[in-house]
């Protein structure tokens, strides 16, 4: 069991904010940490890693990482960390990057084989693509066989097909190394595929916590599906009103009543749902 109970005053772009997180995590869990930017997700990861200080306690199994009296040094916590910008050591080859963490050539080879990087082991990081670099970074994070794997938006700089491939590899490594994994993510499909628990932070507080399906599915009541989007415009055509809404990369039109049209205002975030019985997928 991992117990986190920390607080810290943050001075973000939205003024002062109190990050206050009380979270118990089962060992072996895969947690997705979601929420708007500036909600304290990255800071929480950095506090867990020991890169930033905070008040409170962190206990991992029998070990105390932080309490009122002590704070374990970042070097001594058994963590692997994957940065959004890869952060590979630029003066070392792929293999050397891995061996820098632990002189275990067999483990390094095993990790490179799992992530299909064997051929690239002597290349320098600057000659690799983004996806390859992030895989090296993932391998490097696992070289210490960490109890906890922390990932700060590891895939957000990659294109969709590379993301899907890396998601599979992350899941594979999470299972093989039996780490407790916490991953900051903005992508619902990613969270759904990888995480068995999704925690949503808003203004430094946990507002939602549950299974990926419970947190991510936006339908309510008898709705069969529902989407969130931004109301772009409301047009009057003869006697009816048409709301134009941007959902993802698409624009949709929805007929609304006069009363609804008056209560809505342009720029608002709305949810479009329907009870249609049998939607088709083509």
């Amino acid at each position: 069991m991992i117990k986190i109970d920390i607080q810290k005053m943050l001075h973000g772009s939205n003024g002062q904010m109190n990050l206050q997180v009380d979270l118990n995590i089962n060992e072996g869990d895969f947690i997705a940490l979601a929420g708007r930017s500036g909600s304290g997700k990255t800071t929480l990861l950095r506090i867990l890693a020991g890169l930033e200080n905070a008040k409170g306690e962190i206990k991992v199994g029998e070990e105390t990482w932080q309490d009122k009296l002590t704070c374990k040094a970042v070097q001594k916590r058994g963590i692997g960390f994957v940065f959004q910008d890869y952060a590979l050591f630029p003066n070392m080859s792929v293999m050397e990057n891995l061996l820098y963490v632990a002189k275990d050539r067999d483990l390094a080879k095993h990790l490179l084989r799992l992530t299909e990087l064997e051929e690239l082991q002597n290349r320098m990081p600057s000659t690799l693509s983004g996806g390859q670099q992030q895989r090296v970074s993932l391998c490097r994070a696992l070289m210490k066989r960490p109890k906890m794997l922390l990932m700060d938006e590891p895939l957000s700089a990659l294109d969709p097909s590379m993301r899907a491939k890396l998601q599979q590899e992350i899941l594979l490594l999470h299972r093989e190394f039996e780490t407790t994994t916490i991953m900051v993510s903005h992508d619902p499909s990613e969270m759904y595929r990888l995480a068995n628990r999704v925690v949503v932070l808003e203004n430094g507080k946990i507002t939602q916590d549950g299974s990926a399906k419970d947190v991510l599915l936006k339908t309510s009541g008898s709705q069969k599906f529902s989407f969130e989007g931004e109301l772009l415009d409301i047009k009057k055509v003869d006697v009816i009103y048409i709301a134009i809404i941007a959902i993802g990369q698409q624009i949709v039109e929805v007929v609304v009543s006069e009363n609804e049209a008056k209560s809505l205002h342009v720029g608002q975030i709305v949810r479009v749902g329907t009870k249609a019985f049998a939607p088709t997928i083509s």
Binding site: F83, A87, P90
Partner: peptide, 28 residues
């Protein structure tokens, strides 16, 4: 980059070791 220094710390290495084996060779 700060993140590269931090990656070295999280690999269990101290500040001096990081300076000698990561930072200085990278900015040689």
């Amino acid at each position: 980059p700060m993140s590269i220094k931090e990656a070295s710390y999280m690999s269990g290495k101290g500040a001096f070791y990081t300076l000698v084996f990561i930072i200085l060779p990278s900015i040689k």
